[in-house]
Design a protein around this nucleic acid. Structure first.
Length: 221
DNA sequence: GCGATTTGACCCATG
DNA sequence: CCATGGGTCAAATCG
């Protein structure tokens, strides 16, 4: 499975609709391309290794989505809880996040994930952090024309932080597309990033770190 | 009681 | 001006 990372701006096709973003806003796009192995429950362990290596803030688990369900019957075990478990692990300073994730991929089901997450919550671990290290609150979901998947809208929960992200997910919980907009005006709530690789590196890692536009992308005051 | 999520309604940009 | 569609709001609901 391959992903592409980078900036997209106001004139990109993704915003051919009624984009309310400011033209200067940078948009980071994380999108699976070409083949998408839907049959794989957890398709990108390497992705997570990359994350561990680069502390990329742009990664979100494919399970970071909500199930379509009746309004009155909330499910206790949701894939949407999964990233919080992983994030909690990261936030706790674990250096073995990837191993844990791969372990889950090999041996656990959605319900197992959610159960573990709930246990993590009970243990008082941070619950709203995504793999990108920031905390997000969902504020909307729409079925977008031209897209076969519903799009979810998230805001960074940090006070006064303008960053939003849109996540399109497949029915089986895979991420079809993630679009970040704006720049965080605060540091990640999780552990600090290790020293970044040079921006001009040919690897995607550098782009990934740069993509999200955190501290080192914020113009000096 | 609090905070997060859901989801229909609303706003607004675009053609 | 109107229709359409994307983005956001906010009440209801849940954990």
């Amino acid at each position: 499975m391959s992903y592409c990372y980078g900036y997209k701006f106001m004139n990109c096709p993704l915003f051919s609709g009624s984009g309310k973003m400011q033209p200067h806003e940078k948009v980071a796009v994380l999108k699976p391309v070409a083949s998408r192995p839907f049959s794989s429950f957890w398709p990108f362990p390497k992705f997570l290794h990359d994350f561990n290596a680069t502390c990329s803030p742009t990664i979100t688990f494919p399970q970071e989505t909500e199930l379509i369900r009746p309004k009155a019957t909330r499910l206790a075990s949701l894939p949407g809880d999964l990233p919080t478990q992983i994030a909690a692990t990261t936030d706790a300073g674990s250096d073995t996040m990837s191993e844990e994730v791969e372990g889950y991929a090999k041996h656990h089901t959605y319900r197992d994930h959610a159960t573990a997450c709930q246990a993590a919550r009970r243990n008082g671990e941070r619950s709203r952090l995504s793999l990108d290290g920031y905390s997000w609150r969902k504020y909307g979901q729409k079925k977008v024309k031209g897209s076969e998947f519903p799009r979810s809208y998230y805001k960074c929960t940090h006070p006064s932080c303008p960053v939003k992200r849109k996540v399109e997910t497949t029915p089986d919980g895979q991420v079809a597309e993630i679009v970040y907009s704006g720049e965080h005006n605060h540091l990640k709530p999780g552990k600090p990033c290790p020293p970044r690789k040079p921006l001009l590196s040919t690897s995607t890692d550098a782009v990934m770190c740069d993509t999200h536009g955190i501290d080192d992308m914020t113009p000096p005051e």
